[in-house]
């Protein structure tokens, strides 16, 4: 897929949460084709301690409005700077980068999308892509607390949504891997993104249940295009770049001890 450097224009910026910003951006020309699970490298201006671009997953593509959405957790100075953008500002973006989650060809496949924390972000566009492909996704989304669960109304438009929170303030109390849906329903495929311990627990459940499972990794990266070899994950084929051969990996390729 051809990659682009684009000066996108901010159409809206909202704070759905004290630690998150949702940036919606557009361009004069139609946005390039982008696949669920792919990411972009966002240039950060005006932050003295930020040197590299910030890799951010694609949250959603609104084709009617020609918008790409990024749901960004404010972690350091770079992401906080991105949160200061205002409508009309320009943001230099390299995209689309990386591979994508598999969209099954068999429409009857039962696909479970598991997201934790900010890892729920790519699940929205994956869910939309699955719906467009004639597959009804099921979402299992986890967070610390009810206020940390974002875009739930949008997920509910796409499929059944099950929630867990660590404090029990929404959905079932506990971690996503403890949710009753996992024992009540059968799934053929799981796609997951979130904190690594969560993804490892999901991967373990999938392996033990004989379910195909893809995880989205977020190793620290520089170039984003497979040139610098900084973001490698050790796999059965040796070190491979998460930015180019990932970020999405079938768990059978990885050397995770699960």
């Amino acid at each position: 897929m051809k990659k682009y450097v684009l000066d996108l224009k901010v159409t809206s910026t909202t704070r759905p949460h004290e630690r998150y910003v949702l940036l919606k951006l557009t361009h004069e020309n139609p946005l390039p084709e982008m696949l669920p699970g792919q990411f972009a490298e966002l240039k950060v201006d005006g932050s003295p301690s930020t040197f590299l671009r910030r890799p951010i997953s694609i949250n959603y593509i609104d084709r009617e409005r020609n918008e790409v959405w990024f749901l960004i957790q404010m972690v350091g100075d770079g992401t906080r700077k991105l949160a200061e953008l205002k409508p009309g500002d320009r943001l230099n973006v390299v995209m689309p980068l990386g591979n994508s989650f598999t969209v099954p060809e068999v429409k009857s496949e039962r696909v479970l999308l598991v997201g934790g924390g900010v890892g729920t972000a790519p699940m929205l566009y994956l869910g939309k892509t699955l719906v467009d492909a004639g597959i009804k996704p099921t979402f299992l989304l986890g967070a610390r607390s009810a206020k940390d669960l974002l875009e739930i109304d949008l997920f509910q438009e796409l499929g059944d949504v099950y929630l867990t929170t660590e404090d029990g303030s929404a959905g079932e109390q506990g971690f996503v891997t403890q949710h009753s849906i996992l024992t009540q329903q059968k799934f053929d495929r799981i796609a997951t993104c979130g904190p690594k311990p969560m993804m490892m627990a999901v991967a373990k459940f999938a392996r033990n249940s004989g379910i195909t499972c893809e995880v989205s990794l977020e190793n620290t990266m520089a170039c984003g295009v497979g040139a610098c070899l900084c973001c490698v994950e050790n796999t059965k084929e040796g070190h491979v770049c998460v930015c180019k051969e990932g970020p999405v990996f079938n768990i059978d390729r990885l050397l995770w001890q699960i």
Binding site: P48, S49, T50, F51, L52, N219, T220, M221, A222, C228, L229, C230, C231, V232, E233, N234, G238, H239
Partner: peptide, 12 residues
Amino acid sequence: EGNPYPRMVETA
């Protein structure tokens, strides 16, 4: 194979 991850850290 090169060195293990992590291989990169951003600095000032």
